[in-house]
């Protein structure tokens, strides 16, 4: 029969608790913080890219608007207003935005 390891008692006495809720909460809090930072950074980058994109194509957009003429511009304005009202109405009824930014989860 093999002898028990004399060091086993020492190692057993030294073990950390198997599960410590406080430790888990601290880790998950840090995870949430890091996720928030990453998502903020990515969304800021996406917004910046959007602005740059719009700035780059703005001459084309302006020319397009001029080509449409005033009548069509008014129609577009009405459609835009109707869309906005529909969106707000849907939000009012469901309390959920129809348009939602994609949930960026890279980690």
């Amino acid at each position: 029969m093999s002898q028990p390891d004399p060091l086993a008692d020492f190692f057993a006495a030294d073990a950390a608790p198997a599960v410590d809720r406080g430790f888990r909460m601290a880790v998950m809090e840090q995870v949430a913080r890091r996720r928030l930072r990453v998502e903020l950074a990515l969304r800021s980058l996406a917004t910046l890219l959007l602005f740059v994109g719009v700035a780059l194509i703005s001459p084309v957009l302006q020319r397009f608007a001029q080509l449409l003429g005033q009548d069509l511009s008014q129609v577009l304005l009405v459609m835009l207003a109707a869309g906005l009202v529909a969106y707000l109405g849907h939000f009012w009824l469901t309390r959920k935005p129809v348009l939602r930014l994609p949930h960026l989860r890279f980690f």
Partner: peptide
């Protein structure tokens, strides 16, 4: 796939041995 609950279970499963290892 984004489950925090799953990651919390990973933490629970291995926190004991890893903390013990690092404490030593």
């Amino acid at each position: 796939s984004g489950s925090d609950a799953a990651f919390a279970r990973i933490v629970d499963r291995y926190q004991g041995p890893i903390r013990t290892f690092l404490r030593r």
